[in-house]
């Protein structure tokens, strides 16, 4: 595998001014303005390989958007190096973005008063896509995303989900090698999200398109991404496989037991009963202290067990643990 993006020691400092509350302080700040320097990125480095779907995770203000913007060529970083698809985004912008697709979840990218199909045709000319290529790609995507009818209604009359799908189509028409999705599923319902994810997976498989996704939706990450990068306070705190972080960080497992006949209250060291009623017990096991096997044995010998389910805690829990830990390091 060859890496398609290399980021080295990327830093970005924003200059903002601060003042205390009230009118008098507002007037004072006219003459004596105090500036504050906010380090949005404190020197991050990472690499991304071709054909990957990478999840970019972090709390609000962690530096996700700034990273995406630097990767898109939207802003000049304070220092550091980015080579993406062989280009420096903010220097070779035009050549670079010809191979790039960007979907900004919170921003308008379609012509509000026109049917989406008009925006698609504009994209065709802006990117200089050949008519035949354009037609076949458009048909392929429109069919998959169920847009045949919708794309002929003005964008302003579309639902949020329809609009988001159309934005995705507009960003993919020129068959970009790299696609940056900044909170693409914001505001979508469950069904729309599902379609969206399936579509991204399919495009990734069919065209070897590399995707970088920022999102707060951990299900999305679990469904789409093998690799994740976690960023907090402008620093990367984890860069690796999703399953590795689970392994590394998982000290707990959940055991759900269903009983044939009523059972006594469950009690065992290093186990926490999360919930228990007559026919069900839910236990959280600290696997660093006690083996799951031991717990199961205890359960089997003490109860008339009908069914057992062992599961990992959801990825949300792990991420929360990371963000809450003091240094934020994994």
């Amino acid at each position: 595998m060859t890496s398609i993006i290399t980021v080295k020691n990327l830093k970005k400092v924003y200059k903002t001014h601060t003042r205390k509350e009230g009118l008098s302080n507002a007037i004072k700040s006219l003459f004596n303005r105090k500036y504050e320097y906010k380090q949005a990125l404190k020197g991050i480095s990472f690499e991304i390989e071709e054909g990957e779907i990478v999840g970019f995770i972090g709390p609000n203000g962690a530096g996700k958007s700034t990273t995406i913007k630097a990767l898109s060529g939207f802003l000049y970083p304070t220092s550091g190096e980015v080579v993406s698809l062989g280009f420096t985004p903010w220097k070779d912008r035009v050549d670079y973005v010809a191979n790039l697709g960007v979907v900004l979840g919170q921003k308008a990218q379609l012509w509000w008063d026109l049917p989406a199909i008009d925006t698609f045709y504009l994209s065709k000319d802006v990117y200089g896509i050949k008519e035949s290529t354009f037609k076949s790609r458009l048909n392929f995507m429109v069919k998959l995303l169920d847009l045949e009818k919708v794309m002929h209604t003005p964008v302003r009359d579309m639902s949020l989900g329809e609009r988001m799908k159309c934005k995705l189509v507009a960003a993919l028409l020129h068959n970009p090698k790299l696609v940056l999705l900044d909170e693409p599923s914001i505001g979508l319902d469950v069904i729309a999200k599902d379609k969206f994810r399936d579509f991204i997976k399919l495009v990734n498989k069919k065209y070897k398109t590399t995707f970088i996704i920022t999102t707060h939706d951990m299900q999305e990450i679990e469904r789409l991404c093998k690799k994740i990068i976690i960023i907090n306070n402008g620093q990367i705190v984890y860069d690796g496989l999703l399953k590795d972080i689970k392994k590394k960080y998982l000290s707990n497992k959940f055991i759900d037991v269903k009983l044939e006949t009523k059972g006594e209250k469950f009690k065992l060291r290093y186990c926490k009963v999360v919930e228990q009623n007559e026919y069900e017990i839910k236990i959280e096991v600290n696997t660093t202290k006690i083996k799951v096997k031991e717990v199961i044995n205890s359960l089997l010998s003490n109860y008339d067990v009908a069914d057992i389910l062992i599961s990992d805690p959801p990825i949300e829990t792990i991420i929360q643990q990371i963000f809450r830990s003091k240094d934020g390091k994994v």
């Binding site: 913007k69 060529g73 939207f74 912008r93 973005v97 960007v102 900004l104 308008a108 802006v126 990117y127």
Partner: peptide, 10 residues
């Protein structure tokens, strides 16, 4: 809103 334009190769 300049993002929109910066994302396009023109």
């Amino acid at each position: 809103k300049l993002d929109f334009y910066l994302a396009l190769p023109k």
